[in-house]
Simulated assay, not measured.
Amino acid sequence: MKETKPITEYTNEELISNEKKAKILTIMLMVAILLLFFSSFFLTIKKGFSALSVIPIALLPILIMNINNWNKLKKEKADRNL
């Protein structure tokens, strides 16, 4: 299994690239969770509660981890004055 190196060991190019990727993926995940939330809310009102209604809530920890990773990358980028 491939081991990842700490953020402090990234080169400047890797840091910038990873920060852009983390930003794009986190925003995409936020949009997807919002769409899932509103659609499950609408379906819950129309047809009642189902097991699929909890999927947006179940995805929130992944979103929180992505936001934390993105913030770490931004902080390291700011520390290096990039």
Rank of each mutant, 00 (worst) to 15 (best):
S50K: 00
L73I: 11
I62G: 14
A22V: 10
T8A: 12
F41V: 09
V54T: 12
K21Y: 09
P6N: 03
I64T: 13
W70F: 15
S40K: 15
K77W: 02
M30G: 04
L73D: 12
M30P: 03
A51H: 12
P61L: 06
E76I: 02
F37L: 08
E19F: 12
L35W: 07
P6I: 01
S40I: 01
V31A: 14
N71C: 12
V31I: 14
T4Q: 13
G48D: 02
L63A: 09
T4M: 12
K46S: 13
P61R: 10
K23G: 04
K21T: 11
I55A: 02
W70N: 08
I7D: 04
T26G: 04
L52D: 05
K75L: 13
K74Q: 15
M30C: 03
P61V: 09
I64Q: 12
N66H: 07
N12F: 05
I67S: 09
N12P: 07
T11Y: 04
W70H: 15
A58M: 13
A51C: 00
L59V: 03
K74L: 13
F38S: 01
L43Q: 03
D79R: 03
E9D: 13
I67Y: 09
S17I: 06
I64N: 14
L73P: 07
I57D: 05
N66M: 10
K74M: 15
A22P: 02
A22C: 06
